[in-house]
Design a protein around this nucleic acid. Structure first.
Length: 411
DNA sequence: TCTGGGGTCCTAGGACCC
DNA sequence: TCTGGGGTCCTAGGACCC
């Protein structure tokens, strides 16, 4: 790298087993035990006569929930996030099962982000438990000899970890590298409570031996197709002919795979993003038939639209494209969407247009999930995007009277 | 033992306009 | 009569992430 090229210094900070760790703050007696978080509302720990708490275990669970997070002792038993709770119960029947408490996690999330912001103000939010930081302009982190600079970087990262712990009592893992891709990968190398610095000269030894699937953006499908090409590690991907990658994966993804494997990524740390869509969906306790369970489905549909509308209002958005999502009992998903003449956040209008979408979907088998989504979001007072004329304003109301919903209507 | 809920981005075909 | 490209919007599906 030439001296005039400004080398960026990017960190990825990832909270360790975040939801589970927040629960352990509240129930310290569970520390060291296998604990999983997931499922519904109704498994609050019960206080016993002797003042101790009684916790539900996975053994008693019945239902369709999945694990949101598991403590490290639970992970050692083979359970992990995304796994169905029934399956997890077979592997770890005595693990403690706690319900999710998003309110509390959001409180802790705000606390750790505020603590980090005091030291490093350029933050990109990546959800409730992780952030990217641009440390390039933090004084002291890149001064002096390469050895001094490295020491400075490590000291700053250690300071960030301490600030997070002081604010929340929780540990996190940090990766510091020249870009987001490498930092994301590096924060995972020494979990939990890790601090990993990877510079370009370390890529061959630290990154190339890892499985290709460790790259953020290479999921199960891409991994499988890479394996079919004989590519298993990031190093093998880096050495592979980029033209063959493009022929297999398309030019955009092919080039990206090649660049990623070489540790190259120039995406900036983005401190603010406007939401693109807002949605609500629910999986039923049992599969429902559009005909036999018409009334139940109608009520659920109406409630989803009302929840979506109130989310829009609360977040200060209106939207112009309404969509529905159905998952059948065979797990096949269909979606339908339609753009309205004007943007809205009105539950009744959303329900009418979403109902219109529903009428174009096959309703001949049981449903597992129903969802409603709004896209093309904007602020209510902003001028409408696109070319829709003012005359369209009336049309958003029009389906109210003229559309009937024979299958889902609960009246 | 069947797999939650909230998002983002990409692809691809057709409509429609210039 | 049979032919262009380019650009944008719309819709459906899918991969991926937290």
């Amino acid at each position: 790298m030439s001296p005039q090229t400004p080398r960026r210094l990017i960190a990825h900070l990832d909270m360790d087993a975040f939801y589970a760790s927040v629960e352990l703050l509240r129930y310290p007696e569970l520390r060291g035990q296998p604990v999983v978080i997931g499922g519904g509302r109704d498994r609050q720990p019960q206080m016993q006569a002797d003042g101790s708490r009684r916790f539900a275990t996975l053994r008693q669970y019945t239902g369709r929930g999945v694990i949101t997070t598991a403590t490290y002792p639970a992970r050692a038993l083979g359970v992990h996030s995304g796994m169905g709770l029934m399956k997890a119960a077979a592997l770890a029947p005595d693990a403690v099962l706690l319900p999710v408490d998003f309110e509390q996690y959001r409180v802790c999330s705000r606390q750790f982000k505020a603590a980090v912001r005091e030291l490093a103000p350029v933050i990109e939010d990546r959800g409730i438990d992780e952030i990217y930081l641009d440390l390039t302009d933090i004084p002291g982190a890149q001064d002096g000899t390469p050895e001094d600079a490295l020491a400075g970087v490590r000291a700053l990262a250690a300071q960030l970890k301490q600030a997070v712990f002081d604010a929340t009592g929780l540990t996190c893992s940090i990766g510091v590298t020249p870009n987001k891709l490498l930092s994301k990968l590096s924060s995972d190398l020494d979990k939990p409570d890790g601090l990993t610095v990877v510079m370009p000269e370390d890529i061959a030894t630290r990154v190339w031996p890892l499985p290709a699937s460790r790259i953020n953006g290479i999921g199960p499908k891409a991994s499988e197709r890479l394996a079919a090409l004989g590519i298993h590690t990031i190093g093998e991907l880096a050495a592979f002919d980029v033209n063959t990658l493009c022929a297999t994966f398309g030019s955009q993804y092919g080039v990206w795979l090649h660049e990623a494997a070489h540790g190259r990524d120039d995406r900036p740390v983005v401190t603010h993003r406007d939401p693109k869509s807002i949605s609500r969906e629910t999986t039923f306790e049992r599969d429902l038939h559009p005909r036999d369970d018409r009334e139940a489905l109608g009520r659920i549909f109406t409630r989803l639209c009302e929840q979506l509308a109130s989310d829009l209002v609360r977040k200060g958005h209106v939207g112009r494209t309404v969509g529905v999502k159905l998952r059948y009992d065979d797990f096949k998903i269909v979606t339908r969407s339609v753009s309205m003449p004007t943007a809205t956040s009105d539950a009744a209008v959303i329900r009418q247009w979403a109902g219109r979408c529903l009428k174009t979907v096959p309703l001949d088998r049981r449903l597992r999930l129903l969802g409603v989504k709004m896209e093309s979001l904007r602020k209510p007072d902003a001028p409408p995007s696109g070319t829709v004329s003012e005359a369209g304003a009336l049309s958003a109301q029009e389906p109210r009277a003229s559309w009937s919903l024979p299958l889902f209507d609960d009246v």
